[in-house]
């Protein structure tokens, strides 16, 4: 969706809330994917994605267009949701694999989808290791690294999502990457 299309859609949503469904259908998959890659847990990502879209729905009227993509705004809400989760469990980071196993024992609505995603996750050993080590870093490092290397966002996009200057993002990335490297090597 281009910026012009997003701007037009925003105006339509602000005059008719039902149009929010288009935004939801378009961005649910990337937002859910981002939260899934950050948390590594299907249920958690699903709950966070639901919270993200609920917050977006409730705040869309106050969204003022400043040439920042709606997707960046959605990513910002999702990032805050993920950060909230990591802040709460900051000092009891669990292994990603154990989290996956725990969730396999619970039943959810989309059992098939969950199993296929968990199977997909288990095929990415390097990612699991990086994700696990990343969750041990501080929130500021986690968010930039996840957006850069898990979501393939460039510095300009990350800057728009996090509301920080590009220079800050660059230095956060460089320092964060070094901390992550040390964790991986340890």
């Amino acid at each position: 969706m281009t910026l012009d299309q997003e701007r037009e859609l925003l105006l339509r949503i602000q005059s008719d809330r039902k149009e929010f469904g288009i935004l939801f259908d378009h961005y649910y998959k990337p937002i859910f994917g981002y939260l899934y890659r950050r948390t590594g847990t299907y249920d958690l990502a699903k709950d966070m994605a639901a919270e993200t879209f609920l917050k977006a729905f409730l705040r869309i009227d106050s969204f003022v267009w400043k040439d920042i993509a709606i997707s960046s705004w959605l990513y910002r809400i999702a990032t805050n949701e993920a950060n909230q989760f990591f802040r709460k469990r900051k000092y009891k980071a669990a292994a990603l694999e154990s989290m996956v196993d725990f969730d396999l024992a619970t039943q959810v609505d989309s059992e098939e989808e969950k199993h296929s995603l968990d199977a997909e996750l288990k095929q990415h050993d390097d990612f699991i290791l990086i994700q696990q080590k990343l969750s041990l870093l501080n929130i500021r490092d986690q968010e930039v690294i996840a957006l850069r290397y898990f979501e393939n966002k460039d510095n300009r996009e990350i800057s728009a999502i996090l509301g920080k200057p590009e220079g800050t993002i660059k230095s956060l990335l460089s320092r964060g990457l070094e901390k992550l490297r040390q964790r991986v090597l340890s």
Partner: peptide
Amino acid sequence: MKPEDFEKKMEGLSTPKSDAVPPKELRLAI
């Protein structure tokens, strides 16, 4: 592993893709 090699590894990191279908309704816990 050198910092440059680690950065390269991160650039080429294969991430799990999500094929999640947007749900017809959002179920939010009370």
